[in-house]
């Protein structure tokens, strides 16, 4: 992100966003190509690897940016984009919680003990298991962990994105780590 304007012919990111707000479809596509991976990856891990939800969130984020851009330039573009994405994830999670997901209750429920091991063997993807457990954290704990480990943001940057202090980020990371450690304890021997 924010790697534009390396040559004089390329518009800066702010110029690109300005072109987007004026309906320039080519500029929109360029902006999308540059940023879709980050938005999609955050959403994918926020929702425990559920691609359909992540696709929805990605679509909403870019539609919002292109139709109702709120970037005022008072923070870095990347910070703003992360904030829009996390907010969209939070909104989506709230909507999902409005009704009980019978699919989860009837088919899987909460996997326990050996079931988890079995699921892991089937998927052979530790990232999937970790993402699934991260998705069970409260949104307040989930967002900083996803921003830290998917995007590699520092605590300072996470604090800017979430609009809180670094101390709050550190505290949430601590609680998130603890809960993850407890939920993934069964992997310790396997790893």
């Amino acid at each position: 992100m924010e790697k534009r304007a390396l040559t004089s012919n390329e518009p800066t990111t702010a110029e690109l966003l300005d072109q987007c707000s004026r309906g320039d479809r080519e500029a929109m596509h360029t902006f999308y190509v540059e940023n879709q991976r980050c938005v999609f990856s955050i959403a994918l891990n926020y929702f425990g690897g559920r691609r359909e939800i992540a696709e929805d969130v990605t679509q909403k984020v870019f539609l919002k940016i292109f139709t109702n851009c709120s970037f005022r330039g008072d923070s870095k573009l990347s910070t703003w984009l992360y904030r829009v994405t996390v907010n969209a994830c939070t909104d989506e999670a709230r909507k999902l919680n409005r009704f009980v997901d019978l699919a989860g209750v009837l088919t899987f429920g909460e996997p326990k003990g050996g079931e988890v091991q079995q699921l892991m063997t089937e998927s052979e993807e530790i990232s999937g298991v970790v993402a699934a457990q991260i998705a069970k954290l409260r949104p307040k704990l989930r967002a900083p962990i996803v921003l830290k480990y998917v995007e590699g943001l520092s605590y300072n940057e996470i604090a800017e994105v979430l609009g809180c202090s670094i101390g709050t980020v550190a505290s949430r990371m601590n609680r998130g780590h603890k809960q993850l450690a407890a939920r993934l304890e069964h992997l310790r021997d396997a790893i």
Binding site: R37, E55, Q59, A131, V150, N174, A181, L184
Partner: peptide, 20 residues
């Protein structure tokens, strides 16, 4: 905590599918 952080570092980065 280090164990949890180590696991979290396995989270994946992926491209959105073209349909998006």
């Amino acid at each position: 905590l280090k164990f949890a952080a180590g696991l979290a570092s396995h989270l994946e980065h992926r491209d959105a599918p073209p349909s998006v």
